[in-house]
Design a protein around this nucleic acid. Sequence first.
DNA 1: AGCACGCCGACT
DNA 2: GTCGGCGTGCTC
Length: 729
Amino acid sequence: MADVFKIARIALDVPLPRCFDYLLDGVTKSDIGKRVKISFANREKVGVIVDCVNETDVPTAKLKTVESVLDAEPLLTEDVLSLLRFCSQYYQYPLGATLFTAIPSRLRQVNAFKPDVSVYYQLNHDGMTALASLKKSAKAQLLLRDRLLQPAGKDELKWLASTANNIIKKWLEAGWLDEVAVPASQAMIVGEKPLLTHEQKAAIEQIAFNGFQTALLFGVTGSGKTEVYLQLVEKALQQKKQVLVLVPEINLTPQLFQRFAKRFPSIRIAALHSNVSDAERASEWLAAKRGDREIVLGTRLSVFAPLPHLGLIIVDEEHDAAYKQQDSLRYSAKHVAVVRAKQANVPIVLGSATPSLEMWSQAIEGKFDLLPMTRRAVDAAVLPTIGIVDTRKRYAEDGLSAELLAAIGDRLHRKEQSLVFINRRGFSPVVFCDACGWQAGCQRCSARLVLHRAQRRLICHHCGWGLPAMSACPDCGNQDLKPIGAGTQRLEEALETHFPNARVLRVDRDAMRLKGSWEAAQAQIMDGEADILIGTQMLAKGHDFPLLTLVGVINADVSLHSADFRATEKLFAQLMQVSGRAGRAGLPGQVLIQTGFPDHPVFEYLTRHDFQGFAEQLLTERQLCEFPPYSFQAILRAEASRVELALEWLQAAKSLGLRDGARWLDQVEVFDPVPALMVKVDQKERAQLLFQSKSRVTLQKFLSEWSYLLYDMPLKGGHWTLEVDPIDI
DNA sequence: AGCACGCCGACT
DNA sequence: GTCGGCGTGCTC
């Protein structure tokens, strides 16, 4: 018989670094992970049992009794719980708050969640035949058709296409759709497979499927990484295992979902990301937990999905910063994924064309397996030629060099598409008075206001504050205010002037604000109904546009003199990524990068497509300076009404650390509190304190002994956070 | 995080 | 004389 206890230790969704004890007669270790209903500070709350004991320091009079146990079986099973315990400890975040981030919101509530009430739709045989040859421009129908190879809920379909309701209705009436209550398990069917390149074959063969293994799939754009994922997934599925696939952002899920659904039409895939409704997410989460979903495909939070038969983890676009959560539990999903693979004793494959230095260094040191794929899978597709345009020669107000204009003109002539990439929304980032030196600044942030000419407003990109654009300088009355520099809107205007007959399409957050406009824009680009695209980050990732053969990059150097030591690493990855948009389908691609620093080494490596050489050089630098990945960092950030208060608080926190963590101090470097690079954001002034150590373990020990003391140091009128392995310093 | 308890300004 | 401002302190 199992040991029986009297007291349950319960984790709650409160920002306190401890658990709370409640009486629960007959509680056993097998109850760990179950949810309970309790009264906490005179309020009903849901908690999770994390331990059971017979003795506690809490005075007996204070102990309350658990009102009810909500689960027959633990909602958080042992494997997920131990992963979350690791996260709580590693990221110095309270256990309760950590556990509750991993639980779908519907299951955090006191009211019981009734899963599987929603109807699932699936395309039947008639439907597949009828919809086999849709027009390319019927974007919504195409998306829905491909998704409906697998059972799908209404909410998710509506997210895929805003017109889903009407289309579903039509297809139901035509008898092309079946309503399925619960997606049924079937024998595995594998769709058509392409021939593999030698490199793809070699990569697949290196995954042994006999225990924990970390592999870095280093594949240039177009080398066929997805096909490698698919064949590895097939192997795992053959062993009746579940597969976890992580993608950096929701925009990339539909694409990958289609590939998976087409290849494995009988396999049930759960899509877990923030655009799936709460009810559907909870329902899919529970289905995965029952083993009723063979594949879970989702964004970073999916790394905590319950998978009783986990057999493989895939992390696509491993270098992407979106894997790092930037609030509450500040975890790195790819790091957690590696820990999960280790705990579950399964292989993990991380793919990227420009791996993070952190992963790359592990691979070349032999700690991870390196799976290189340096050739494009389509024979005819060659790597684009990359040219550097020196913008010091001639200053162009609109940001467009003569070389780039000529190349665009050339594409127009050949009826091919051009993409002009600029990571800056609005018309111009600076509004400046020649006469007195005045600049338009935000009243709530230490940032400049960006001119949005269409709205005739100056807008702060950090807090949203703004004011109507003025025609005269508010300080000296000068009538000649100058908008300096170019954003997407100015480029749009300039390109329309240069090429009056071209169809110019701007794709940024402002232009794509309306629902469905992004889908429409994609269809427009696919069908060749646009000649020149102006895009921000949105256009850099994912989608392949077959007619696109020229990519121009404006102002590639804004980040080159940034204080962030990761700036060049990020720039290289970003430029490689946009370059990858050029010339994928047999048409040769050209990339033109405008910069005022043409001699910077990053461009030399870039023109040679030499990631390895670039990484080697950066790693040498990092080693010399003892920067990550040769050291490990943590940052304590504080925000308050005035920066002096934040600095004072950090100084006090530092002294506390110096006293209490003294025995680690010879191995942990504690810097001085400094104001943040951008001191003021949204009326709050910020400062930070950096910790660094050559040993991850030592830093962990130091943080563990010191960080809980911070909870007893109130920051009046402010807020603090501790971040382990920060990526923005 | 909530929320209650607790001492000082402008209102019926 | 009260209503209410949000400063500190607690939650098993």
